[in-house]
Amino acid sequence: MKQVVSILLVLAVGFFIFSALYFPNQGDSAFDSYGEVDLDERVSSSFIDKNVTGENDEVVFGESANLEDGSANYVTSVIVNYRSFDTLGEVTVLFISAFGVGLLLSGRRKKQAFAHQPNFILKYGARLVFGIMVIFGVYMFSHGHLAPGGGFPGGAIIAAALLLLYLADNDFRAKMKAFKVTEGIAGSIYVILGLLAIVIGGYFLMNFLPTGIVGTIFSAGLIPIIYVLIGLKVGSEIAGIVDSFLTVEVEK
């Protein structure tokens, strides 16, 4: 009975979604058809030409210099420059959820023992891979303005490397205090950079550093700095969540 009611409700919701999207009244469609988007009509065209605040015609990789935002990766330029305030809120949401997980699973804790003792290959292979994963994570968040990736996936990779150590060694326990200090410092510097931008440029989180030549590693002004901070913050937050889930409360 419950299933039948659910199916009927889902079909009704599906009908409304499809009719709103694909049978528009007389031409004013809510969305363009799939793949037939004209970017010049959208706000994204000024993100691509980097002329949101000033005049600019074309961005050339390796040649254009001193643009309003020097990031070669457009998604990064939207996340960390044009919509940086949004990202500050997003990082806050992640912090609050990590805080909530720590609060719910709190108490004096020790590492949860797994049913099987990890064997030799897992134990030493994990230590070998751990360094490579951390280096790759750091590479990812320090090259967020040039290549795919950025602070969020880079931080997640670092946390995954820590998870590997937890899985491979029954006695391993990370020093969570260091992660909490890292997270707090990274978040504070992000806000302080935003306030500093008000003093220097007049807008919160404005890109006040020189942006350099598009496509070089020292370019894009504030973007790499903020993405490194986000990488450290996300990495330590997810590591905290992993630690909370893989430990059990100790009876006193």
Partner: peptide, 12 residues
Amino acid sequence: APILTSNHNSSA
């Protein structure tokens, strides 16, 4: 993909 590289080097 919305990334400038040395192969796709222009915003045009």
